[in-house]
Amino acid sequence: MLFTFINSLTLGMAVFLIATGLTLIFGIMRILNFAHGACFMMGAYISSTILGDMPGSVWALIGAALVSGLVVGVFGLIVQHVVLARLHGQDEHFSLIATYAVMLVTAGAIKMVWGLEFHSVDPPPGLDGGVSIFGTFVPSFSLFIIAAGIAVFLILDYVIHRSWGGKLAVAIARDGWTSSLMGINAPLGISVVVTGSFALAGLAGGLLLPNQTLSPVLGDTFLLLAFITIVIGGLGNIRGAFIAALLLAVIDGINAWFLPGSPGTLIYLGMVTCLLLWPNGILGESRL
């Protein structure tokens, strides 16, 4: 039971790590970023190139993840300037399709650079075994993912709701025109948030790398789950996404415990129920 719960929590936090960037870009630009999964995958591939088959230590893994985040963030900045900024003020569905196109190009480019074969990177020493909690064996990498999820949540929550920069971003998201009247550089703010969102995708890719198999379908694995999470949580709402990720974990745990015969179905049912109960997400839609 505890074991199932920790497993599901691992899944929930992994999905949360990916959902953060997605909800951030939604908060400021009102678009679902289809390219997010591909960017996550890009981060994972970059990390694997830095690390090789076997990371030397936990810090090497985190360092590589940060570098991947940086690279993917720069990619996001380019996408923002070349594509998204030009579509600003247009029907938001154009941006949606633009991100779809970016996804196609990114996924195609990844295949050309890294090939089609499966690759695998191992957990660093120290995280490759397990620990015993109340007599239950728990893989240490699961604990690492859970810790990473909570850490990312706390940092983001602080940055958005407490820091000066975060408040500026919230102001731009709520009303870009008025904030620019007040002397805030709105386009710069948007660029920073978009870069941050892409960087989070890259970071998630680097952190989750030892947990997954590298293959060109990696991006699709998480994208729908991350969509569901941010929708249940309330779009653009980091706290909502966190709660939704926990809920996802509980639903997945219930599924594994009571309905092992139909894995993966309860999540869809749960989502439909959640949307009917809270049509705007658990914590409501939020402009960041």
Partner: peptide
């Protein structure tokens, strides 16, 4: 048979079963 979802990110529950 123990069942797993297709294209899933995590198999630990199945592994423990």
């Amino acid at each position: 048979p123990i069942l797993a979802p297709v294209n899933a990110p995590d198999f630990r529950n199945q592994i423990s079963q």
